[in-house]
Design a binder for these strands. Structure first.
Length: 870
RNA sequence: GGGAGCUUAGCUCAGCUGGUUAGAGCAUCUGCCUUACAAGCAGGGGGUCACAGGUUCGAGUCCUGUAGUUCCCACCA
C-alpha cells in the first residue's frame, strides 16, 4: 500500500530524495504574501574548506526560523553564499601549493596565483553547497552570492570611494600589526593576545656627558631602532639628563634624552627606550618630538641593513645575539621573569610585529556613533540581551580600522597613483590615465580586508547600490543569526555600514548562538583533530537527528557540547515518531474525517486535543521568542510521553471496533493531532516530518509549504483534560504498587477506588483494565480488607494483596531469598573480618565488599518485611 | 587592568517575568519480547540547585560578597 511507511526508520531512504523534490517544486524561493516578508542572509562560510559542526548549528538555527516563518505565511527568503576570506584562503592555497608543488605564490605570479585561488573557491564553494543541502537548509540557491561576485565587488568599490570622498577612508603611515608569516598588515581584531612567559631586561645606556642611564625592556633587539630615551618631565631623578645625549650601545648612533608625559614614573626604572618604528606608543612619541624613524626589520621580521652586524638574523636570534653582546659589554644589568600579553596572528599564530608602514584606514568615530545609538535605542536588539555589552564596549573604544592587506586574494584597492604628477585618485572604475595630468597610473597593489566586503553583506547581496526589487523588498533583513565570536569582527561592521550606506540598520535582531565543543568541552580545532564532520553524522544518523541534537541541549548564546550519545538519543526520538506514525497509518484510511469534532469523541480524545491546543500555543510563542530548545523539549515530551505512551495506548481498544463511530473518532483524532504535531516539528526535523506527512490520508502538497497550525478553541476541553489527568495519576499509582510487588502483567485483579470526584472516573473502567492490570473497577467508600492503598490527589486506589501474589509461593520464594542473603552476608562478613584480606587487598576492593555487605543487609531487611506482610 | 558568562542528579544540560513535592537525555537498578517501536515498555534510586549573607509570606530564580571556571576587551615599556 502506498500509504505505508517502511518498517524501519532509515533516513537515507528519503532525506536526499525529499530535498530534491523540494528543489524541483521550487519550495525555497519566496512566494509573495500579504503578510509581509521575512528575510535572512546566511553568515557566509569561508571558502577555505568544508563546513564544520559549528556551521551546522548556525544553519540549523536559521533554517528553523525560516521554515517556521514560511509556514506562518511570510514571504520568506534565506539567501545563501560564501566569503572569499582573504588571508585564510590565501594561506590555505599557498600551503597547498607548497606541499604539492613545492612552489610559493611568487613562483606563480599574481595573476596565475589568483586564478588558482578561484579554482580552489570553485571546488570548496561547491562542497559547501552540497553540505548545506545535506543538512536540509531551505535557502534560495537562485540568489547564491559570493563576496567577490561582480555585483558585490561593485558595492565594495562604491563604498570605498564614498568613504574616501567623505574623508572616512584615508591613507596613513602608521604602526600596524604586521604578520611576518602572512607578510601583511592586520586589523586590531585580527590580533589575538596571549600571555607569554618572557623577561624584563635592564640595560645600561652610556650617557655621552658621563654616567649611565638604565632602561627596562622586554624586547632588547629593538634597541637597534632606538632613536631616543624618554623620561617623565616631572621626574626629579632624571631632570638633569633631559637634553643630554646617549650613546646607543651596539651601534654608533647618538640619541637624545627627551621628556614625555607618556612615561610612567612608577613603572620599571622610569626610563623608556623609544623605538618609533616598532611600537605604537613610541611611534606617537616620535611624532611629538620629531624623532627619526629607523626601521630595523624587513617584511619577514628579519633584521635589515639598519641593524649593522645583526643584519639577516631573525628577530628572536637577534634578541639572543643582542643580549649576549650587551652582557659582554657589561651593559646588561638585570633580568627578571615577566609574563605579558603578546599579539598573535589569528590565522597562522605567528607573533605579531608592530611595524610602521603605509596603509589605508577607515576613520571609525563618525561611523561608530550612530551604530552605538542604534543599539542603545533598541533599533538593533541582541538575543540574548547581554551580548550588546560586548558590542557596545568594543564600539565605544573603537580605533581606526586598518583595511589594506598585502595580499593578492581579495578586492584590490581602487586607488590609482599617477607616475607623472604623483597624485592619488580613487575611482569606482579602473583608470589607465591620471585625471589630473593625463599621465600613466598604476593601481594600489594591496587588497581590502575581507571584512570590508562582509560588512556590506546584508545589502550588497540584495543588489545594493542599485535599488533592485530584491533590495527594496527584503532589506532590511529580519534577523541575523551568528555565533558570539564574531560580534566585533562582523556584526558591528554590518551595523555601522548599513547605517552609513543605506541609512537603515541591516537587521532589527541579532540572534546569537554559542560554539560547538567536543564531548570534553574543548573547542574543536584542526590541530586537536577533535572536529566533527557534520556529513559523517548525517550519514550515520540522518540530518534530522543532527538538527535535533543541535537544536536542543543548549540555550541561546551558550556553548554546547557535542557527543554521539546525544545524536543517538535524537535518532531514537525520530525512530519513536516513525513507529508511532506507522502504527497510526496501519489503522487509518482515507475514509477517516479530517476534523475530529463529533459526538463520539471520548474523554481521552478530548484530553489529547486540549493538550495539543496548548502545545500549538506554546511552541509558536517559544519560536517567536527564539526559544528553540524550549519549543523542542515540549514537542519531545508531547510526542513521546503524551501521544505515544498514553494516547495511543488509550486508543487501542477502539481501534479494533472497525466501523463504529468510536473507532472513527479515535482515528480522526489520532490523525489530526499527528498531522499538526508533524507541522510543529517540521522546522526542526524537516525530513522525517515531510516523509510521514506525505503518507497521511488527505495529504496534498508539502508539509514545508503547508500552514502553521492555529489553536482551535473548539478543542479547549479544559475540564475533560483535568479529569483524564486524574485517571492517569491513578493508573500510575496502581502500576507502582504492582511493580513493587513484582506482579507479572498477566495477573489481573479487581481495583477498588475511593474518590470524591466519581464523575472523573465514571467512564474509566476500560483504561484501568487495559493499562493498570485491573480485572474490574469497583467504587468503594472505605478501605476494603487486606488491601494496599495508593493515594493520588483525586482518589485512593486499593488492591488486594492476595489477588496479586500467590501467597504460599511468594512466602517460599522470600524465605529462600532470605536464607540465601543470610548466607552471603555471613560470607562477606567473614571476609571483612579477615585481617589479611583487609590489609593486603587494594582499598577499592575492600570498599566494594563493604558496599556489597550493605546492599545484602538492606535486601534482607526488605525481604523480611515483605515476608512479615504476607 | 576592565567586562561578561558559567557553577543544578554519576555525566551533559533545561529551568521564561520569584509560587504547589527542582526536570530531561545518557548512565544505573528492578521487572517485562504487553505484536508501532528492545533504537522499546512499566517502575525505581540518585540533587542541603558552588559558598556566605540579604530582600520576600515564599528564592535554583532578585540583590551583595566570596571561591572556582571559561571567554571577551585592553598600546603600560
Amino acid at each position: 500500500m502506498a500509504r505505508e511507511l517502511q518498517k524501519t526508520y532509515d533516513p537515507k531512504d528519503f532525506e536526499e530524495a525529499l530535498y530534491q523534490k523540494w528543489l524541483e517544486a521550487d519550495c525555497f524561493s519566496p512566494k509573495s504574501s500579504a503578510k509581509g516578508t521575512f528575510s535572512v542572509v546566511i553568515p557566509p562560510p569561508n571558502v577555505t574548506g568544508q563546513l564544520h559542526i559549528g556551521h551546522a548549528l548556525n544553519h540549523t538555527t536559521q533554517d528553523i526560523l525560516v521554515r517556521f516563518k514560511r509556514m506562518q505565511g511570510y514571504e520568506t527568503l534565506w539567501l545563501p553564499g560564501t566569503d572569499h576570506a582573504g588571508i585564510a584562503t590565501q594561506i590555505r592555497v599557498e600551503q597547498d601549493l607548497r606541499e604539492n608543488e613545492h612552489k610559493s605564490r611568487h613562483d606563480l605570479g599574481r595573476e596565475k596565483f589568483v586564478k588558482r585561488v578561484w579554482d580552489w573557491k570553485a571546488t570548496y564553494g561547491a562542497k559547501i553547497l552540497e553540505q548545506t543541502k545535506k543538512l536540509g537548509s531551505s535557502c534560495d540557491f537562485s540568489r547564491l552570492r559570493f563576496t567577490m561576485d561582480e555585483g558585490l565587488s561593485r558595492a565594495v568599490r562604491k563604498t570605498f570611494v564614498d568613504y574616501y570622498q567623505k574623508g572616512l577612508v584615508y591613507q596613513g603611515y602608521r604602526i600596524t600589526n604586521w604578520c611576518p608569516h602572512c607578510v601583511t598588515a592586520l586589523a586590531d581584531t585580527e590580533v589575538e593576545h596571549k600571555d607569554l612567559e618572557g623577561a624584563f631586561w635592564d640595560i645600561k645606556y652610556p650617557v655621552k656627558e658621563g654616567g649611565f642611564i638604565t632602561i627596562a625592556t622586554t624586547r632588547p633587539e629593538t634597541l637597534l631602532g632606538d632613536t631616543a630615551v624618554a623620561v617623565h618631565p616631572d621626574d626629579e631623578r632624571y631632570k638633569d639628563l633631559v637634553g643630554k645625549t646617549v650613546l646607543l650601545p651596539l651601534t654608533d648612533r647618538e640619541i637624545p634624552v627627551i621628556a614625555d608625559e607618556y612615561v610612567d614614573m612608577e613603572f620599571g626604572t622610569g626610563v623608556v627606550k623609544i623605538t618609533p618604528c616598532h611600537d605604537p606608543n613610541d611611534f606617537e612619541v616620535g611624532l611629538r618630538h620629531d624623532l627619526a624613524q629607523i626601521c630595523i626589520f624587513d617584511d619577514h621580521a628579519r633584521v635589515n641593513e639598519n641593524g649593522g652586524r645583526y643584519q639577516g638574523m631573525d628577530r628572536f636570534e637577534a634578541r639572543k645575539a643582542v643580549l649576549a653582546d650587551l652582557k659582554e659589554l657589561g651593559l646588561l644589568v638585570g633580568e627578571r621573569k615577566h609574563t605579558h600579553a603578546v599579539g598573535h596572528c589569528y590565522r597562522c599564530g605567528t607573533i605579531i610585529e608592530p611595524l610602521a608602514s603605509k596603509q589605508w584606514f577607515v576613520k571609525m568615530k563618525p561611523l561608530a556613533e550612530p551604530a552605538i545609538e542604534a543599539v542603545k535605542t533598541g533599533k538593533v536588539r541582541f538575543v540574548p540581551e547581554h551580548f550588546e555589552k560586548i558590542y557596545l564596549n568594543w564600539m565605544e573604544n573603537i580605533h581606526d580600522w586598518c583595511i589594506s592587506r598585502q595580499l593578492w586574494w581579495g578586492h584590490r584597492i581602487p586607488a590609482f597613483y599617477c607616475d607623472a604628477c604623483g597624485k592619488t585618485t580613487v575611482s569606482e572604475t579602473d583608470l589607465t590615465v591620471c585625471p589630473h595630468c593625463g599621465g600613466a597610473v598604476h593601481q594600489d597593489e594591496d587588497v581590502l580586508d575581507t571584512w570590508f566586503s562582509s560588512a556590506l553583506w546584508p545589502f550588497s547581496t540584495l543588489g545594493w547600490p542599485d535599488q533592485t526589487a530584491d533590495y527594496q523588498k527584503y532589506y532590511p533583513t529580519s534577523v541575523l543569526v551568528t555565533a558570539y565570536d564574531i560580534i566585533t569582527f562582523w556584526v558591528s561592521k554590518m551595523i555601522f555600514s548599513g547605517l552609513a550606506l543605506t541609512g537603515q540598520v541591516p537587521f532589527p535582531t541579532v540572534f546569537i548562538h554559542g560554539l560547538v565543543r567536543d564531548a570534553q568541552g574543548r573547542k574543536m580545532s584542526k590541530s586537536l583533530g577533535n572536529g566533527v564532520d557534520p556529513l559523517e553524522v548525517v550519514e550515520a544518523y540522518g540530518a534530522d537527528a543532527l538538527r535535533f541534537t543541535l537544536a536542543t541541549g543548549s540555550t541561546p548564546g551558550n556553548d554546547l557540547r557535542f557527543s554521539m550519545d546525544r545524536v543517538e538519543a535524537s535518532r531514537n526520538f525520530a525512530n519513536k515518531l516513525w513507529n508511532a506514525s506507522r502504527f497510526v497509518l496501519m489503522n487509518a484510511n482515507e475514509s477517516v474525517g479530517e476534523d475530529p469534532l463529533c459526538e463520539a469523541l471520548g474523554a481521552e480524545d478530548k484530553w489529547i486535543l486540549c493538550e495539543y491546543q496548548r502545545l500549538i500555543r506554546e511552541v509558536t510563542t517559544n519560536l517567536e521568542h527564539y526559544e528553540i530548545g524550549v519549543a523542542l523539549s515540549k514537542l519531545y515530551d508531547f510526542i513521546w510521553d503524551v501521544y505515544c505512551d498514553w494516547y495511543i495506548e488509550l486508543c487501542k481498544p477502539r481501534l479494533n471496533e472497525k466501523g463504529t463511530p468510536q473507532n472513527r473518532a479515535a482515528l480522526s483524532t489520532l490523525l489530526y493531532v499527528l498531522r499538526g504535531t508533524l507541522k510543529l516539528l517540521h522546522p526542526i526535523m524537516p525530513f522525517i516530518t515531510e516523509e510521514i506527512y506525505q503518507k497521511l490520508p488527505h495529504a496534498s502538497g508539502f508539509i514545508m509549504t503547508s500552514d502553521w497550525p492555529q489553536a482551535d478553541e473548539r478543542f479547549d476541553f479544559e475540564r475533560e483534560m483535568r479529569a483524564m489527568e486524574e485517571v492517569i495519576d491513578v493508573i500510575r499509582a496502581v502500576r507502582r504498587i504492582r511493580a513493587e510487588k513484582n506482579v507479572p502483567p498477566k495477573v489481573k485483579a479487581p481495583l477498588y477506588l475511593k474518590t470524591d470526584d466519581p464523575d472523573a472516573f465514571s467512564q474509566s473502567e476500560p483504561y484501568f483494565i487495559r493499562l493498570a492490570g485491573a480485572s474490574e473497577l469497583a467504587f468503594v467508600t472505605k478501605a476494603p480488607e487486606g488491601c494496599i492503598a495508593a493515594a493520588t490527589n483525586a482518589a485512593t486506589a486499593f488492591l488486594r494483596l492476595s489477588d496479586l501474589v500467590d501467597t504460599e509461593a511468594e512466602k517460599a520464594r522470600l524465605s529462600a531469598e532470605c536464607e540465601n542473603l543470610e548466607k552471603q552476608i555471613a560470607i562477606t562478613e567473614k571476609k571483612l573480618e579477615n585481617r589479611d584480606f583487609v590489609s593486603r587487598a587494594p582499598e577499592a576492593v575492600v570498599n566494594k565488599e563493604r558496599e556489597k555487605l550493605e546492599r545484602y543487609r538492606a535486601a534482607l531487611a526488605n525481604s523480611r518485611a515483605a515476608l512479615a506482610a504476607l
